[in-house]
Amino acid sequence: MAKAEAWKPTLSPGFWGSLAVMGVGIVFFIYSLQFPYTSEIGPGPGFFPRWLSGFLIVLGVLYMSNSIRGKDKSEKLPSEKGLSSILFILGSMVGYVALIGFLGFITTSAAFLFLLLRKAYRWYVSLAISAIASLFLYALFALFLRVQLPMNGLGF
């Protein structure tokens, strides 16, 4: 979405937003067709989903017409620099989710914090903060609150 925005600067974010809303509406509407519309006592499992997703499509159309007519003054999507830092954070979070099962909580958390803190402080300061914070959170959640955190093969 953001890239497309850069290519076609004339279209507002609202346009793409309305497209996304319609898209969600259409996906849910099609999906909802497989559930019975009625049941013994009245509305079936397909009743509400069909009406709601249908309504969402209509709202998407209204939203698009508002944004094309320039009534929509919502914020612009981020600049390239802003975008890259957002993507970096998201990438780190996705990496965190992907790796925590293998590397265990402490290692993954320390790596995650280090990645995000790396430009805020000198690298050894960041490393120290990351390690201490991860160990502290481990102690807090795993030892004090007894949450079963993911471990690696060596047990941490």
Binding site: V21, S32, F35, P45, F55
Partner: peptide
């Protein structure tokens, strides 16, 4: 849009009223 999206998200999962697994 926000209200309808919220309601639709709530439909996800097994529906206790009918047993159907939705979305």
């Amino acid at each position: 849009i926000a209200v309808v999206l919220g309601l639709l998200l709530a439909m996800i999962g097994q529906d206790p009223g009918s047993g159907a697994s939705r979305f």
